[in-house]
Design a protein around this nucleic acid. Structure first.
Lengths: 216, 216
DNA sequence: GCTTGCATGGGGTGTCGCCCCCACGTCAAA
DNA sequence: TTTGACGTGGGGGCGACACCCCATGCAAGC
């Protein structure tokens, strides 16, 4: 079963080049071409290809918007971005639009083929320079949500109370959970708010979320 | 300038196979081999390779721990995971340990070479089936923080009040800001909480952060 | 031995949050 | 035209919260 491919690029020569390049592959069949975003969307509607090779710089709509539209109407159609852009912004936007691959035009032909095959299988191929950006983003997300532990000089008991406060539990609920009096809970809360220079439960909740003590 | 490579795998045959496979490449030079995590760390210390090809299943320490140790001592040495494991857990842990690539053993030889070259250049190669997992994770992070706009049937005025409530402003402060009475603010708050099925300011703050109305 | 910090309590006071009740003007939809 | 949603405003009540005061016991450290 061949992979049915739609080429989208506003330059005729680029499409022809891709056609030359890909027509030698036994598992790929080019079923259509489009030079604008609207043509691409129409072509997807009528041809239902397995994979769309999508340029970003198109004359009418951007390839990002086109991808969003295609994925919205046909979630089963995979879209691989093939573009000269290697900046962070386009890359992340394309991912959010639902792209199943991102390959810069300077990539080797085999990499493009790998991306097409991966996309057809429902997987994702990312070019190494861009995968690096995504991993970086992932690590930032991770580290911003741990990194706590110290908690600005709060005692153990205060940290314990803080976890309950952050979740919005009332004083008497915390007292029950920790088997201490409501007054003591209030006392701890006062100390916590003084140490952290906070002035309401709301600020406390935001503080706890920033510190990763609780999930939003 | 050749890429200086260290092979780490507990099976002699696998190392020999990789040596066969890679020795034909003109830009790769295998400078050493190791069968255990400790041998690998010693070898990195003495040889300072550009790239380490790291198995995960090692007899003494896991390749993940070994990677963490290597990146901690020599951040400039790139580590590419080459393993039979394709589960989410190992993959994410390896990323956190600082791996600059992740390739399952079933991958094609060219993909391994792409990964080695990408890692040597400070980039990241991820095998498509795993890149998919990372993108999925990324999209979850994103969508949990945007996706707002509609706000579950709140009226304009209610949304306005919600923004203040979320920031922890007290009723009279909101009343002053919006030039309405405290009672009206309270009225709006009640309606908001009823519509969103929330029961305290704390829950309201967390809701607002999830919806991206305010930053944590 | 004495201070210091921590956790534990009690009392008081005033504000605020949360939940009912009500009313009126406006504007759009039925 | 009438109905309904929306924004506005008010009254009353109860409990929780925020901010003070105070004291006790216990461990660590000077």
């Amino acid at each position: 079963m061949k992979i049915r491919l739609l080429l989208v690029d506003d330059h005729q020569v680029v499409r022809s080049g891709l056609r030359m390049l890909l027509s030698n592959e036994s598992d790929v069949e080019i079923v259509g071409e489009a030079g604008t975003a609207h043509d691409a969307m129409d072509a997807v509607d009528s041809l239902l290809p397995d994979v769309v090779l999508m340029d970003i710089g198109l004359p009418d709509l951007s390839g990002i918007d086109a991808t969003r539209a295609i994925k919205s109407a046909h979630p089963e159609v995979a879209v691989v971005a093939l573009t000269i852009h290697e900046d962070e912004e386009y890359f992340f936007k394309m991912l959010e639009a639902g792209a199943g691959g991102y390959v810069p035009k300077r990539a080797a032909p085999e990499e493009l083929l790998t991306a097409i095959r991966a996309a057809a299988a429902g997987e994702v191929y990312l070019y190494p320079s861009l995968a690096k950006l995504l991993v970086k983003d992932y690590l930032i997300q991770e580290h911003s949500s741990e990194a706590g532990k110290v908690l600005d000089g709060l005692t153990e008991r205060e940290q314990e109370v803080l976890r309950y406060l952050a979740e919005g539990v009332a004083n008497d609920g915390i007292a029950e959970a920790l088997v201490i009096s409501v007054k003591t809970v209030a006392r701890h809360r006062e100390n916590i708010m003084q140490k952290l220079r906070l002035h309401s439960r709301s600020e406390l909740v935001r503080y706890a979320i920033r510190k990763g003590i609780i999930k939003p």
